[in-house]
Design a protein around this nucleic acid. Structure first.
Lengths: 351, 351
DNA sequence: CTGAAAGCGCTAACAC
DNA sequence: GTGTTAGCGCTTTCAG
């Protein structure tokens, strides 16, 4: 492995000249074109590449950022969102010359202190954080003294990092409009229960959209389930569809729940969209199902890209910014929504 | 950020002592218990963590490995396999104290030389490679002078790296057995065309399993499509199911194709498993569909873990091993296979 | 058992 | 314009 000294020797210049000519930093224009060319030639000939660790050590910046992914879910479909996020972030970072170190929270056993230590030892320039854990983790990151930005999650009180969040409202409003126009009058929401701001926000947007719908009065039915699993989705669907006031459409708060609703529908010979309209939230995986699911899409890739911009700004400006960037959801009509039928009770037997 | 010198000062010892006591390397036992304890206390008090870049520079090893993922596919479901592989590898590497730098081949524009340079500049200790590109990429990796192992892909002639491959045979044989026992007599295979060893191998295993089936004579129908997309799967299904000698079961060579077959079946009111039995290959995403798909499973996570073991062995032993490890597929019965019906031609109209 | 000294490969003042 | 010098934080001979 050739070093800059080797290049210097071949080019007949000092090691400094090589460094300056190749890195183009401090006093970039101070090398004469002729010398620069000699250096470039020598470097090319020797196949020289600067030693990243040496540069990092000297410059006190490593050009790598740590990406903490959400814990991997058991369900296969749950792998899609983290992967989209990671690759999008990795691509955006690569464009800025940064590499990305990926870690899973499982590897972070030991909690806050361990995480802080990890970040410091790794000497990363920044942290991108996509794990849904509590504030102690965020504080740990913050106390590592490294710029960080959180992905997707809303800023809770006292949150020390800037973040990129997505606003359910636009997609939700469009979804309700769509359903209202189609003739639906009672719309069910199947979402995750609990105090998590994300869940509260989605539900609130659903309710607001319903209230603000400008056509006929729309009725809501809300069914909260314990998590985002397929099983939870099935239960939500069952509760919704066996309820006295049966909705003609369901909006779920995640793809996982949608998969559950779909399973319930299939097992009970409820045809989508004929007997029930279904709208998913996330749109990470449901576009390829049968039928392709009308969805409120979260702009995952854009979030990651935006987070990278924020992070790089923070790194360059010396961790100043404390922004929160909000990206809108989009509504995509596919084939799981239609005009409501007069279908009232369960169909009997096979089709 | 405290340095080892700071710790030394607090502990009242030399910097050397700190290094030796904490890293536990060269002459581990040479520090007296009392001194070691003083050092440990001081380090804890100052919250000291060794500087990774400095260590890497000095030791000439970075404890990071580069993971080159396959290019991200357009279809959402295509994201699952790379993510499973990455997280499994990352977890296994973490256990050995390695971090993982993830990169996508898209970032590697410029081909071989660029890749070699990247690896050298990054100063990674090893490379894990899961991209389906040609031998030039593998040669580039090999010529970076760093141990590497390839994931999933078979070793082609002259392949310079050890690799972990999966053998379709066991799962395929079990699948054929299952189908034969159920009473199927003509089984279709929908796979990707072309000379890629993976595809040839899967097809060969299918044919061999059919030939070796010990019950009734089984007939094969082979339909090769252009890629692993949903559209290709639809076309494969159409060709298979409109053929004169209509199969009662289809085995696809990937989850993507299965999704396509499913779409075709749904659109043509063909019910699975009543009218058609369906078996997928991969089993990355199809367990959660309706019906859950009987599958030949590739052990992705195990592959990644095995690859990590191989890589670490190569790193430690000074890139000696040139192994190829073969992991078996498994057959998992779910709900997409059943007794064949006497269904011969298309059903007419809606259910 | 412990410390002093010599760098790993590079960059950034500072002189010339 | 160019070279000299002094380290970044750590490990590792080699003397004590």
């Amino acid at each position: 492995m050739p070093t800059s000294a080797d290049v210097a020797k071949v080019a007949g210049v000092s090691q400094t000249a090589v460094s300056v000519a190749l890195s183009g930093r401090s006093g970039s224009a101070r090398i004469s074109p002729a010398t620069r060319q000699r250096i470039l030639d020598a470097a090319a000939k020797l196949n020289y590449v600067p030693h990243k660790n040496a540069v990092a050590l000297r410059r006190q910046e490593s050009m790598v950022v740590l990406f903490i992914t959400r814990p991997s879910r058991i369900e296969p479909f749950g792998q899609v969102i983290p992967h989209v996020l990671t690759t999008a972030a990795s691509g955006a970072l690569a464009e800025h010359g940064y590499s990305v170190l990926v870690t899973q929270p499982e590897e972070l056993a030991g909690g806050g202190r361990a995480l802080t230590a990890l970040i410091q030892r790794l000497q990363v320039d920044g942290v991108l954080y996509d794990s849904p854990d509590g504030p102690e983790v965020m504080n740990a990151i913050a106390s590592a003294g490294v710029p960080s930005v959180m992905l997707i999650r809303p800023v809770e009180t006292g949150n020390p990092s800037p973040s990129v969040v997505v606003d359910p409202q636009p997609g939700m409003a469009a979804a309700i409009d769509h359903l209202g126009l189609l003739g639906h009058r009672r719309i069910a929401y199947v979402g995750r229960e609990g105090p998590h701001p994300i869940d509260r926000h989605r539900l609130a947007c659903f309710q607001a959209a319903l209230a603000q719908y400008s056509g006929h009065q729309l009725e809501e039915s809300i069914f909260l389930v314990r998590d985002y699993s397929i099983q939870a989705g099935e239960q939500g669907a069952e509760r919704a569809l066996t309820h006295n006031e049966r909705p003609t459409a369901i909006i779920t708060s995640s793809d996982g729940l949608t998969l559950g609703v779909l399973r319930y529908a299939n097992e009970n010979k409820i045809q989508i969209p004929y007997d029930l309209s279904l709208i998913s939230f996330d749109d990470a995986v449901v576009a390829d199902l049968y039928p392709p699911i009308t969805s409120i899409s979260q702009p995952f890739a854009e979030c990651a890209a935006a987070a990278v911009e924020l992070l790089i700004k923070a790194i360059v400006d010396g961790q100043s910014v404390h922004d929160q960037l909000t990206l809108p959801t989009q509504f995509r009509v596919r084939s799981s929504t239609g005009v409501p039928s007069n279908f009232i009770c369960y169909p009997q037997g096979a089709p």
